[in-house]
Design a binder for these strands. Structure first.
Lengths: 228, 228
DNA sequence: GGTTCCATTATGTGCACACAAATTACGATC
DNA sequence: GATCGTAATTTGTGTGCACATAATGGAACC
């Protein structure tokens, strides 16, 4: 019959959901499950590893595998390039560069970049438009060392998109929050001052050093969906 | 020396980041890589599968493996039980039940639950407190069919926490957005009317049917962090 | 009683092999 | 030239085995 690892996962999941094994309880060893379900231990291992990665099981060597006491919901979502996200909704995309200049960053950003005082970074501000309406306003600091000669024309391609396809990144950090639009932001995004904006702050690193930090302000009405 | 699959992943990642293989380009087959790097194809397979799951590679049978053209950033975050999140910050936790009654849901919720008109759902509203200060206000609709007899005392345990540990869930949906606090919400959360609130809306399902839908309003200042 | 050490045990992972599944490339046929 | 069928290729996965690694529990010892 040939049971696949996904079948094993399904069966284990069924038992968890049916409270066949209570939360916090030990479940049989891989070997026992393999014998019971009629497959190799490798196959059980893969299924259990997958469920553990999903947060449903907790596994420790020697201690065994137990059903997670607090099934942490581990949500995942994709962060597409803004252009693709907008075009994916069937809208036309455009990017409007508001500002591009060298400037000394505020202390918080400077310490983040671990750059010595007096060294300017590249300051970029721009607006992403969907069907010619403001959709996303970005304020960015960028380490000019990553730019080639000649520098890309950010009036034609958004910094985000250029970075994604030209600079190898190795890590970073991302956080979401909500903020009231200040008058200038409201003006740029074409919304009322004080409107609640969905904010995404990102720091992108390469080889352990920050390359760029950006604050993305979404126009009112934006929703970020994730899968459980 | 014994190369582990994580070593292989690291090496492949290095080559991607070093633009050794350009975005969109085909990379060698598993077999070729296994021979070159001196390990079994299984090991290469695991490494490449992992990178593909992370969105860095695209793999298709027979077509081979290529470096993703648009390295979609796939972020993951854990959604802990609110109590654990607050206690994890070293603050004391408390839950205050504001309202519990049977009520007919608005049309949008009724259609979501696919419940016939006239059948009431359980309406719950409550406030999560961190160090006795409002942290999270929740408005929930709950299918009373999942409740045992006697029903749990939601003055003692928050609906969220009770559900997580007593009702097997199989899926759901989650979305984040921002909203201005209406006067009542501002009063409950102890913030200014109109303040930008971070909103989390969740629908939880079991066996394909919605069990509960909830709108979570975080007090101003909340940040949701994720890992890239 | 407490500390150290070690055997036991469950998971983690590598390997060689086999076959399955998908998709492409190519050749045969019309 | 277009269409169809088939073979070749690449990834996907199962199996049995071996050994590595970590954590546990208890024995030995002070």
């Amino acid at each position: 019959m040939a049971l696949g690892w996904e079948d094993i996962r399904t069966e284990v999941l069924r038992r968890i959901e049916a409270r066949h094994w209570a939360p916090g309880a030990l479940i049989p060893t891989e070997e026992a499950l393999a014998e019971e379900l009629g497959c190799a231990r490798t196959t059980v291992n893969r299924a259990l590893r997958d469920l553990a990665a999903a947060g449903l099981l907790e596994r420790r060597r020697k201690a065994g595998t137990r059903v997670a006491l607090h099934p942490v919901r581990r949500a995942r979502f994709d962060i597409p390039v803004t252009r693709l996200e907008i075009e994916g909704r069937g809208q036309s995309y455009a990017f409007h560069l508001i500002e591009e200049r060298r400037a000394e960053p505020p202390a918080a950003v400077a310490s983040l970049f671990r750059s010595p005082p007096g060294v300017p970074l590249l300051r970029l501000r721009g607006l992403h438009l969907a069907d010619n309406r403001p959709a996303l306003y970005e304020e960015r600091w960028l380490d000019p060392a990553v730019l080639p000669e000649p520098a890309p024309d950010f009036r034609r391609i958004s910094p985000n998109e250029w970075l994604v396809s030209h600079v190898p990144w190795t890590g970073g950090d991302i956080a979401f929050s909500a903020a009231n639009a200040c008058p200038e932001e409201a003006d740029i995004l074409g919304c009322a001052p004080g409107a609640a904006l969905f904010v995404c702050e990102r720091v992108t690193e390469a080889e352990g050093r920050p390359i760029t930090s950006v604050r993305l302000l979404h126009a009112p009405g934006y929703r970020l969906r994730a899968d459980l």
